[in-house]
Structure formats: C-alpha cells, structure tokens
Design a protein around this nucleic acid. Sequence first.
DNA 1: GACAACGATATTGTTGACAATTTTGTCCAT
DNA 2: ATGGACAAAATTGTCAACAATATCGTTGTC
Lengths: 222, 222
Amino acid sequence: MSQDAAVDRAPSGQEIADWVRQRIRTGRFVPGQRLVEVDIIRQTGASRSKVREALKRLEGEGLVEIEEFRGASVRSSTLDEVRQIYRARMALEGMAAHDFTVNAVAETLDRLKALQDQLDACVRERAPDRFGRLNNEWHRLIVEGSGNKVIADHLQRLNVPIHRLLFESFYDEKRLKTANADHQAMLALILSGDADGAERAMRQHIGDGFETLARIEDEFYR
Amino acid sequence: MSQDAAVDRAPSGQEIADWVRQRIRTGRFVPGQRLVEVDIIRQTGASRSKVREALKRLEGEGLVEIEEFRGASVRSSTLDEVRQIYRARMALEGMAAHDFTVNAVAETLDRLKALQDQLDACVRERAPDRFGRLNNEWHRLIVEGSGNKVIADHLQRLNVPIHRLLFESFYDEKRLKTANADHQAMLALILSGDADGAERAMRQHIGDGFETLARIEDEFYR
DNA sequence: GACAACGATATTGTTGACAATTTTGTCCAT
DNA sequence: ATGGACAAAATTGTCAACAATATCGTTGTC
C-alpha cells in the first residue's frame, strides 16, 4: 500500500516540486484545485517545511498560486496567456536555433540527424505518442546545443501547463506530417549554415504549433 | 542610529528579497560575498524564516547561490554568462518591440514620444546619470506596452548584476549619442508601423550595448 | 615556522509547537 | 427548505528551540 515510489530518505524540496509539477502536467492536479500541505506530506513523506518550500518555488515558476491563509492552488492559464508563452518561446527558441547553427559541435549534429531519422520512422509508422516524446527531445537538443544556458533555463519555465491535452493524441495525421516536414527543413537549414533561416523556420514552426493548439481549444469549448 | 528605513511592522519575504537585490545591484554586496542570515536579520528586523525565504527566492532568480550548511552568497557571473543574458534580452526585447509596434495604444505612444524628448534633452545637456534612468524607463515602457506579461516577467529576471559598472558613468559622450540615435530610429520605425524593422533595430541596439559593456570589462582587466 | 588534531564558536538546517485565519458543521428562527 | 449566527475543525503562518555542519582559533608536535 505504498502511495509513492519507494524512497528511504526524506525527499528534498526540489523533488517535491518535481512531484507536484509532474502531477500538474499530467492532469492529476487540475487548474483551480487546492494543494493542501498535509495531503502532499502524506503522499510524499516529506516534511512540512520542504512541502512549503516546494510550493513557494512552484509559485515562482508560475504554476501555482498562493493566497494568504488559503494556501496553494493550481493556477489556470487563459488562452491569451498561452499565446504569450508561445510568443516568448518563439523568441527564445528562435534565437537558440540561430546560435545552434553557429555553435553546434559535430557530435551534437550527428545526434540531431539520428533523432530526425527516428522521427521520420514515427511518421511512417503512425506512432503519435512516441513522436511526442522524440519531438520534445528534438527541441531540447537544439536548445542545449546552442550553448546558451540562460536561454535554456528560461525555456524550461515556459512549458505550458497542458492540462488535458497531454493525454489525447495531440497530433492528428496531418499535423504530424507538417511538423515533421518543418523539422526536416530546419535540419537542412542548420546543416547549410543558414542561421537566420533556421531562426525564422523555428519561429514559424512554434507559431504554427500554437495555432494548432488554439484550434483544438476552440473546438473543445464550442 | 537606525540601520534601516524605519518600518514598524516586520518586513515580508518579498521586501527582504527586494532589499538584498537592491544591495547586490548597487554593489554593496559584491560577488562571492557571503550573506549571513543573522546579519540580514539585524539590518532589516525581519525574522529568520522570512530571511531564509527571501534567499531561496533570490536563488531561484539566479542572483544568489546557496550551498548546504554554507548558506547564501552573491553569485558572480562570467562575461560569457553576461553575453548569454544579452542574447536572451535581444530575443525577448526584440519580440516586445515587434508586438509593441502592433499593439501599443495611442496613450502609450504619446508617453514614449515624451520620454524621447526628455532623452534628447539629456544628450544636449550631457546628463549621463539622468539619461541612464530615463533609458531604463524607455525600455520598460516598450516591454510593458507590448502587452505580453510573460515576456515582461522573464525580462525582469534578466537584469545583469552590474557590479561596479553602475556607479561609474557607464555612458561616455559617444556611446550616449549612438544609443539615443538608436532610440530615435526605433521610434520612427514604430510610428511607421514597421514591426519587423523595430524588432531588428531593438536587437541591434541591445547587441551594441553588450559590445560596449564587454569593451569596458576588457579594459578593466587589462 | 609549518602543519595536523582538536575543541570552541558560529552558522545553517530541521522540527515541532503555537497563533492566525479560513472552512466546515450545527443549531435555530423564519 | 433557507439563511444567519456561532462554535468546531482544518489549514496555513510564524517563531523559537534544537541538531548538524562548517569555520576559526589553539595547542602540541615535528
């Protein structure tokens, strides 16, 4: 009857924050839901100070909201805020793509090419969930490979709280093909050393991603 | 013999964080200096938990480093990290300039024009310190007026810990004129509705700012 | 004089108890 | 049934004492 992945030592504040963040991202904690300290303590085995520390941290990241004497609750974000987040991602990840083109070492380029092959396979075999994971990996590789840790840190905090969308197969057939074509085109631009082109392509790609998401949201509420 | 601005009630964690941040920005706390909890308590009158909370927050912002059982110290940033920060600023503030051109309301445009007049006056009258303050105001107005709170929040955290540079008159005669010319050109692009042009100009402007700073640093260590 | 061992002090980390506030439950009048 | 007043419970905020660790000074040895 263990309610958590077995750990002997008491979890750190960082681990609690990860635990809560995970639950928010996977939709087990939904927007507006209150996060009662005692519940988290019971489920994680952490001490109260650590839980409080973790919640404060998550407040700093903008994932939870803390009201005096009312505690923490999962923050809900409007579509407009998601749009702002995507706008910020366009700027930062575009810059990362630019710098990646200039700075990336040969080994990183090889890994990117290998990843692209796997993504192509996913499209052929119609494996959208696997595509999603590899897609994240692909974007992470670009950002890490750009050599700018500051931008990487800020992008880390710009992950949209996806709520329900994570479970449904976000990508339909058509969107999957389009996205992968974007990746292929970007890879070509990177390999040819066209940094500005890579940046433009990345911004366009992320902008399209938001359009898709906005369309799904729109249908959901219709 | 009051060691702090008189406050009756105990300061909040946010206020302590502001207090420390201010001291770091103005160079009263220098990189590497240890921030002993008791000292901050004595100087601010805050309780220990509040001080610890504030230091944790500052750690999240990257201004402070916390080692276990060794406490907090002011983080020192290398020139390369400053370069990365400026790169991030170029991306985000460029995007802000773009969106400002599209979204700004008439009243905000008027305020920007008024601010530009004041900046012109500073150049004529050779008032570099006043120019610095108004310059910050100018950039803040662009960011706030872009209507993207997410980008504004992230830029807030990208303020370089300037260390000593804040005290010396950062801008020499020539740099001051160049910067102001940039501002004038950008204002013209914004008023003409050229969003892409405004973005390019903003990025160039910030990039030049880093070049200037890097040159000063370089001379300092020579 | 250099250096290691050791104890004293200073500093940070953690826990638990208590205060402040909100939330929930109950009773009663209408 | 509905709604308000009040008490009980739950929840969060705060503080102070204690534990763990690091830092510093002292002493003794070579």
